[in-house]
Design a binder for these strands. Structure first.
Length: 130
DNA sequence: GCATTGACGAAGG
DNA sequence: CCCTTCGCCAATG
């Protein structure tokens, strides 16, 4: 991925898309992720399901990719795959950052997987009850 | 404009 | 039970 242009330009580009209502998907994902309670986690599929596109969990991941330069900060570290595995950790500033952030929220991580994932799991479709 | 690629997930072998 | 394939859809080459 060649970042020939400043990242903020890319941000503006994607923000423009969302603003023009062409793609609200990204913003929706951010909105949901930002509502994840501290110390809880959710999965890409759960978010996708909440947004009504449960068959497109991959897009959630893609949105997260763009979430890096989103504002306010998106707690992407609280989003893992359905196994509770920190598959996205490689996309953070440092591979350890994701686990570090989770640890600060009392979330135990062993072997790149969230411990007690079932208990910590936060399903927006249920918890948010929309 | 077609082919490839995902921070996923479910299904099939 | 491990591994492969397929679907999903936007982005990128």
């Amino acid at each position: 991925m060649k970042r020939k242009n400043p990242e903020h330009l890319k941000v503006a580009k994607e923000t423009a898309r969302a603003t023009t209502k062409q793609y609200t998907f990204f913003e929706d994902v951010y909105a949901v992720v930002r509502q994840i309670p501290k110390g809880r986690v959710t999965s890409y599929g759960a978010i996708a399901n909440y947004l009504g596109t449960k068959l497109s969990a991959r897009m959630v991941g893609w949105a997260m990719n763009a979430a890096h330069h989103a504002f306010p900060k998106v707690p992407a570290h609280r989003v893992v795959n359905r196994n509770g595995m920190l598959t996205g950790k490689a996309h953070f500033a440092t591979p350890d950052l994701m686990q570090q952030l989770l640890s600060k929220e009392k979330i135990k991580v062993e072997n790149d997987t969230v411990v007690n994932f079932d208990k910590l799991f936060w399903d927006p479709a249920k918890e948010l009850q929309l």
